[in-house]
Nucleic acid binder design. Structure first.
Lengths: 226, 226, 226, 226
DNA sequence: GATGAATGAGTGTTCATTCAT
DNA sequence: TATGAATGAACACTCATTCAT
């Protein structure tokens, strides 16, 4: 080819951008879906925010619905594997382990945009049943498994009471889900709810989770070593 | 004509229907909003389900948005007064009181369609800022107050630990919100989540709430009388 | 009849009102049609302003269109007969006669609601062809005839130039129509057009009509008596 | 293929259409607005007549109201500049100048569809207050200024009587407005009004405007040179 | 006669999706 | 590959008209 080869950085930038297109679109879509919900998000807006035309969006995603599904799939944290390993190697009391779990969850998920995704997923579950099942399979189930393993450890090591495992999981899950939901609904709208501090919330929830409400003879937050 | 005369004119079919219209429409709207979400619910469908024409709906509600607001108001607001009185007169331990609160909440709200509206309200919060503030003011705030009063009683009577009240409220609220959310999202889509029993869930949550996870010297769920 | 005869004024009032219904409706309709035009006037509003229900309106007028036609027909001033007689007996110069015509037209038509009717008729002419023809026959034609007779008198008495009668009529008509139109369009919207005085306008138009723009040797507004 | 290649890409059918769209839509809208009035004109019909779909119309005009405004702006505004210059350079008597003004007005506005828009604008003035003010500012005011300048010239050169300028303007304006109104209302509906010749009308109006009705010593249409 | 609840065809407007360039 | 002009099916909402009471 006698024409000039793509030496110019502009050209390479373009190439890079080209490959990055779907990612940029997913980013933009994630933001908007989280911010406004599925129906209120316009593909036009997604494309514009991603810096491409509406037509281009449909080059990569055959429909708005597929775009949404892709966003959910893409933004799902597949980090349960490493997380699981991390916890497997955890040294120390299970109470500390639980506390650590909550803290790292907040750092890695709760405080990031991924939490918005979860809220969105839960909100739209009814309209995307297959997606919901996918989500259940890929996120919920592994997540619950992780929680279960922590609880199991606590029980086996004689630190935790022997609770009904099937439902105890929710005692751990609920505060997390609640926090994600709250942040993206009431918390984002009602101004005087702004002096709600997520990190304090988490500390209180863990404390509550471990110690319960009732006065106990030995009031130490962490139980005495057996 | 010897046949029964229309004794009470108010009981004529037309008249009765007229008075019932708003209620029937709210019923239909409640069903559909809960089932499909705000955007996916068409006013046509609401009207049809209520057995009237589209025009009639607009006779009673000036817009879809107002219809939604009316459903929210109707389906959630207003029972806090009697509830509050009920609890004020409660005899017995605060643990029992808490258990009672959860149970009646489930009977009156959690297990009804109102829970679907709560889920929807939280999902759509961002799209209806004024409604969200109304909801915060009329529902959330009174609800939290109720919870607070129970916790306060427990602490004052020496039954509960002295916890950070501002955040302890969420330890009670979160399981409820979670349950409503769960029922209407994952729970409604994932078939094998069907062996999830809300009543067991509630019992477990209350138990957990009171006793915490950690082993305690006296393992009785309700503490021995001091 | 043992029941009380309708002696009460309330009853007679009602009866009177009943007979007056169509008139009240026409009044209200005239006001609203003039104010907002045909399309922007809602039958609901007409009925409400007339103090009856929408259904009642349709008892007297089979459709909005017929109501409009009735309004036009009703509000037409059938006073051309007496007017014609009045002018036939006029003593004095035809210039004075013209001036008198303008003045009385303003008093009887131009300054009254009837002028709004004319504006309305002209605005909606295209959408009500049959009505327009009726209007032409009942209003325009007699009106032009009246103007023609004045001009004719002026010419025959040697006061007016011999002008093309078919078109000279419009020189008299145009200022009147213009005034009616202006009042109800620009004049009603543009605030700074408020220092427009219709009576001065009329005086100027008559003066102009008689004397023209060009300088003339004898500059007296009214010509010297022959 | 030996057939002519698309030499200029801009001339491709699609491209050319694109650029022509707003114009075609304005044309169609102008026709329909003039023919049926604002309310009776359906955007569907406008689009169809312009050969596009309804959606396309909203690509170029955000609402029916804006379309209407655009038609008004397009069809009437903007020729005052050149007109003003033309008249400033006019040589000859002011009577001739006035006659010339009427003639060119008829050629450029009166006889075109723009006159229909003027009529519509005046009819709908009350329903579009902001548009009416715009119209007043952009059309009426400059137009009156033009007329005023002609009259001023006549007076200053000693050709015209010293008339009340504020109202004399209407003596020139009224015949024009009347003609536009007449053409599109009575004139378009009443068949026997068809032997009304606008050009004769204009000649007569100018003659009348200059000479008035009254007999004058020197009956020459144009005054003798001073 | 009078009501006003009910209707449903019709209207402006939106927006995901297509496709010629 | 990327564009953006074009589409048309849908939707919320209106309002003249009907009719049981």
């Amino acid at each position: 080819m006698p024409t000039s080869p793509p030496l110019s950085p502009a050209s390479s930038r373009r190439e890079r951008r080209k490959e990055a297109r779907p990612g940029e679109l997913l980013e933009a879509a994630l933001d908007l879906f989280v911010e406004k919900g599925y129906a209120a998000t316009k593909v036009d807006e997604v494309a514009t925010r991603a810096g491409v035309s509406k037509g281009t969006l449909f080059l990569y995603f055959p429909s708005k619905e597929e775009l949404f599904k892709a966003v959910v799939r893409e933004s799902i944290v597949g980090r349960f594997g490493e997380w699981s390993q991390e916890l497997a190697q955890f040294q120390g009391s299970t109470a500390d382990m639980l506390r650590y779990s909550f803290t790292t969850w907040w750092e890695r998920i709760g405080s990031t945009r991924a939490s918005g995704m979860t809220k969105l997923m839960l909100s739209e579950a009814g309209n995307f049943p297959e997606l919901t099942q996918f989500y259940q399979r890929e996120v919920i189930e592994p997540g619950q498994q992780l929680i279960r393993s922590v609880l199991q450890r606590g029980i086996e090591r004689g630190e935790f009471r022997t609770v009904n495992m099937d439902y105890a999981v929710y005692a751990v899950l609920a505060p997390m889900i609640f926090l994600m939901l709250w942040k993206h609904s009431i918390g984002a709208c009602v101004p005087d709810a702004q002096n709600f501090d997520p990190e304090v919330y988490i500390q209180c929830q863990v404390d509550q989770l471990l110690n319960g409400l009732l006065i106990r003879p030995s009031p130490s937050p962490t139980p005495p070593p057996v």
